[in-house]
Computed example of a mutant assay.
Amino acid sequence: MSIKLIASDLDGTLLTDCKELSPKTREVLDLAVQHGIYIVPATGRSFHSIPEMIRNYPGVEYVITANGGAVYSVREGKRVYQCLLEKESVEAAIAVRKRENMVLEVVIDGVPYAEEAYVKDPMQYLATEYGAKYIKATRKPVKDICRFAQKHAEELDSISFVCRYEDKERLYTSLDKEIPNIYVTSSVPNLMEVGHIDAGKGKTLLWLLKKLEISTEEAMAFGDADNDISMLTSVKYGMAMGNGTENCRKAAPYVTDTNEKDGVAKGILRFLSEAE
Rank of each mutant, 00 (worst) to 15 (best):
Y130I: 07
T16G: 03
G244L: 12
Q124W: 07
K211H: 14
L126P: 00
M241F: 10
A265F: 15
A66L: 03
N101D: 15
L10P: 03
Y38C: 05
M123N: 05
T185G: 14
G244E: 13
G68T: 03
I229C: 00
Y237I: 08
L175Q: 00
G200L: 07
L104T: 14
G244Y: 09
V60F: 09
G77C: 05
E193F: 02
S2I: 11
L21D: 11
L206R: 07
A149H: 04
N101R: 15
L85I: 00
G223T: 02
P253A: 07
K143I: 02
Q124P: 03
T13A: 13
K98T: 00
V90T: 04
E100N: 10
L126A: 13
D30A: 11
P41L: 10
F47I: 11
R99S: 12
V71S: 07
N243Q: 06
T65K: 09
T258W: 10
I159R: 01
D144N: 15
N227S: 01
L272E: 12
F148E: 06
G200Y: 03
E213C: 07
P58R: 09
C83Q: 14
K210P: 02
L104S: 11
E178N: 02
E217C: 05
K211W: 06
D167L: 05
F161R: 04
I6E: 05
K261S: 04
M239H: 09
D257I: 07
T185Q: 13
N247M: 07
V264R: 12
M239Y: 03
C83I: 05
K250Y: 06
A93F: 11
P51H: 03
V90K: 10
A219W: 03
C83E: 14
A132L: 02
C163S: 08
L212F: 05
P58A: 08
D11Q: 04
I135P: 03
F148V: 13
N101P: 00
T13V: 12
V235R: 10
V28P: 06
L14Y: 12
K236P: 02
F47W: 08
S8L: 06
R170Q: 11
L272Y: 15
K87T: 11
D226W: 01
H152G: 03
E274G: 01
D198A: 08
I159G: 08
E115S: 09
A199D: 07
A70E: 10
A153Y: 01
Y118G: 01
G242H: 08
G77I: 08
G12F: 04
A252D: 05
L15W: 02
I37E: 10
I145H: 06
G195E: 12
L272D: 06
K250E: 14
G244K: 02
I145M: 15
G223S: 10
V103C: 04
F271K: 06
R45K: 11
L104W: 01
L212Q: 12
E274A: 15
V107K: 03
A251D: 08
A117P: 00
I50V: 15
E213Q: 14
N227Q: 04
